[in-house]
Amino acid sequence: MRKILLSLLVLAVPAAAAAQSAEDIAGARIGYYRLLGHEMSLLAAMAKGDVEYNAEKAAAAAKDLQTLTQYSVSDLFAPGTSNAELPGKTRALPVIWEDMAGLGDKGAAYVSAVEELNGVAGNGLDALRPAVGKLGGTCKSCHDDFRAKDF
């Protein structure tokens, strides 16, 4: 029994180390942004009229985005995880680590657009549309400066 436990421990050590690899951090970061994309896809489909507006669902998606703003992203931007260090694995540009303040400004604009959206998402399509447009603009604005177009 002890032998089995020990060998499990031996197996677990490299696994634990691997969980902190730069590639895994980049993967987690991509996962975080995919969640934003997931919520945005429903909101944008409603704003464009591809999906029928539903106050409850719109408010829920907006709320999820708000919840995600509570997540502290700083550890997702650990040093050594840019696309210069991990080519093909991430699109995070090295300029992020030279200009954390700039990234923070884009993040702040994004958070305030999420707040604005949460104020109106349940109030009908006419209220939702401009708020989704504005929020999408803050996604673009950060991607323009801090994300490569392709892997």
Partner: peptide, 20 residues
């Protein structure tokens, strides 16, 4: 561009690799 507001109208017909 994955901002959900400035998406080319034909992007939905190709894979995300091609769209990127």
């Amino acid at each position: 561009p994955e901002d959900y507001i400035n998406v080319g109208p034909l992007a939905q017909y190709v894979s995300s690799d091609v769209a990127r």
